[in-house]
Design a protein around this nucleic acid. Structure first.
Lengths: 192, 192
DNA sequence: TACGTTAAAATGAACGTTCATTCATTTTTT
DNA sequence: AAAAAATGAATGAACGTTCATTTTAACGTA
């Protein structure tokens, strides 16, 4: 096995351990020593891959956000009709948030906490452009409400995070019927 | 001034300081010593009012959640029509989240973080019953969609938190026109 | 292949700092 | 003068980070 792929494995193990531990304990309540132990390496080794704890968190955030965005636009093509395109993206996001729960919960904690610094936050936001473009097209076609994209996001995408939270706390079980209901509500709130 | 009211002042100052510092730094990055300093008392004195740090946070959470709920149902009466009742509650919540930003941000951080223990979380959830009752009534009258209250909450109430976040980060300015737009979208998503 | 040599990767004990909490003492109130 | 409230220095545990040392990998030579 090459040195590179071994290094990748350790980095990957570190990222995974960070996500899991931060989900369960929060950022400042997860010591580097525990992250190292869960990743199966020694504490000092973390510093071969990341500058320090803050840098570790920022990097993990950016990577998870990127993998989320990739997932969101999987199989989406710009020539789709607005409605079909939105459905594809929305359902991708729903699948991600309901199946990749660890990663989704991590993002949710990062987005509601001062644990990520502002540059990394901005960095993580870049990838959503295709959805914004789709909405503008929809507005030009007279299909989508003429309101700010923040508003559209708040009412169609953001609710999925709440449902994920409830499902995670075992307060609510989301069957695929429920996901369809939810999609219809999302579309209802943004279509004219 | 009586001992009681003095004690109340100190407690209040502690609660306020905790909210502000936790908003800016997160729970575990806020030392008791800083909370004490901002409240204008000595670190040891905190322990006359709260058992320990965890208990302090739990109490603050429960109190802020209670004050949020009181605000939400201000001027609401059960004999209102479903639509009028929902509008009153929704707009109360919107006003709270957009004006009492410190408290709203604190709740948002608590609700997306493992910093609050489960019993306190449950405790904070109790006060929302009148809204659930209203929704059931609306469903019986054939006005509100026949879906789980979690779904109704996700699409009509939860989005306000996102708009608050954006406003707080100065990415978005919410005028009263926007609030009206938002209300219409909320109502649209839950009405039949 | 086997061996010796050098470089790279990984280790984990040790360091210095920070923090929650305590309690002997002081200050304030009754 | 007694009781209650408040103080803040002291304590001990925990943590992030470093670095002297060890382990592993890579390479050249015969």
């Amino acid at each position: 096995m090459s040195a590179t792929s071994k290094g990748q494995n350790k980095r990957e193990a570190l990222v995974k351990a960070t996500i899991k531990l931060v989900n369960n304990n929060g950022f400042h309540a997860t010591p580097m020593s525990k992250i190292a132990k869960m990743a199966g390496i020694s504490p000092g080794t973390i510093y071969l891959y990341f500058e320090n704890k803050q840098n570790l968190i920022n990097q993990v955030y950016i990577e998870v956000k990127a993998s989320f965005s990739d997932f969101a636009f999987m199989d989406y093509e710009e020539h789709f009709s607005v409605e079909k395109g939105f459905e594809k993206i929305w359902k991708n996001i729903a699948v991600f948030k309901l199946k990749e729960v660890e990663e989704a919960m991590f993002l949710s904690q990062c987005d509601n906490t001062p644990m990520i610094d502002e540059p990394s936050r901005k960095e993580g936001l870049k990838h959503l452009q295709p959805l914004l473009d789709l909405w503008v097209r929809g507005q030009n076609e007279g299909i989508i409400k003429q309101v700010s994209p923040y508003m559209l996001y708040a009412f169609s995408i953001y609710p999925i995070a709440f449902l994920m939270n409830m499902q995670q706390r075992e307060l609510y079980e989301l069957s695929s019927t429920h996901v369809d209901e939810a999609y219809k509500m999302a579309w209802n709130s943004i279509k004219i």
